[in-house]
Computed example of a mutant assay.
Amino acid sequence: MGWDAEFTEHFDRCADSMRFTAYLLCGNHHEAEDVVQAAFLKLYLAGPKMARREGLDAYLRQIVVRTFLAERRRARWRREKLAETLPEVPATAGLSEDKLVVWQALGRVPARQRAVLVLRFWHDLGVEETAVALRCSVGTVKSNTSRGLKALRQRLGPEFGALWQEVSRNA
């Protein structure tokens, strides 16, 4: 099977999952779509040069997270401009109120901590796997996990533990 066919198959299988991961990171459907599109482009360009392709899912997830973090670093230099009209509000039909509350709180956690929380609790990666994905130390993952969870607890209140576990399990 050639790379184009392999890539198409991989895209068909993973696109929705990566879009949702990017949405959890960005909190915005439009930005998430841009991140995923850039990530798939990077994967497509890197594919022919890759000697082994066993870990494409993990590699793609890593590209999505790094693309998101790079975009956040660039965004510091840009300022948001006020517009005449309000942007579209994404449809929330079918989402429970609990999920919306958690996702909104997650969107207010700093980007690096949010990336760690999404990888650790949404994708169920271990500390070491998360460290590899983010190119950081195990200690950095642990401290960002602790700080991120603390930030979520402050935003969600005492019922946080059960709510976060239910949302991450049932999504």
Rank of each mutant, 00 (worst) to 15 (best):
L60V: 11
R79H: 01
T21E: 09
V116F: 04
T85H: 04
A131F: 01
M50F: 12
R79E: 11
K42I: 04
M50K: 10
E9L: 14
V141R: 07
M18F: 14
W3V: 12
V132R: 14
V138T: 10
V64A: 07
P87L: 08
V141H: 05
T21S: 11
T92S: 12
Q154P: 00
R72M: 13
G157H: 05
Q104M: 03
R155C: 00
G55D: 15
G27D: 04
F160S: 08
L24G: 06
E71V: 00
R76S: 00
E33V: 04
S96V: 09
S143P: 00
Q37A: 11
D16C: 04
L56G: 10
G157T: 05
A58V: 11
L82Y: 01
F20I: 08
Y23D: 03
S168I: 15
F20D: 12
V65P: 03
D12W: 12
R147A: 14
P90S: 09
V132W: 08
A115I: 00
E97F: 03
E31S: 09
D98T: 12
L152E: 01
R73D: 13
E9I: 11
V141I: 12
P110Q: 08
A75Y: 01
L149E: 06
K150D: 06
D4H: 13
V36T: 14
R52H: 14
H30V: 13
A46M: 09
F160N: 03
G27V: 03
K150V: 02
T130W: 01
T21M: 15
H29F: 04
L100Q: 13
F11P: 05
A83C: 08
V118Q: 02
R19W: 06
D57K: 15
C136F: 05
L106K: 07
H29I: 11
G157D: 05
P110F: 01
A111R: 02
L45H: 07
P87H: 08
L156A: 02
V138C: 01
R73M: 04
R52M: 14
T8K: 13
L45A: 08
R72Y: 03
D124M: 13
T130R: 03
E84N: 02
R153Q: 10
L82D: 09
V167F: 10
F20S: 11
F121G: 10
S96T: 15
G161A: 09
S168P: 00
R78C: 00
R72N: 05
R147K: 13
G126I: 12
A115C: 00
L163T: 15
A91G: 09
S137D: 12
Y23C: 00
L134G: 12
V102C: 09
F40T: 01
S168G: 00
E166C: 05
R112L: 04
G139L: 04
H29Y: 06
G94P: 06
H29D: 13
E54K: 14
E88W: 05
A131K: 03
Q154Y: 05
F121A: 07
V64E: 09
G126P: 11
V36F: 10
L152D: 01
V65A: 11
Q113H: 05
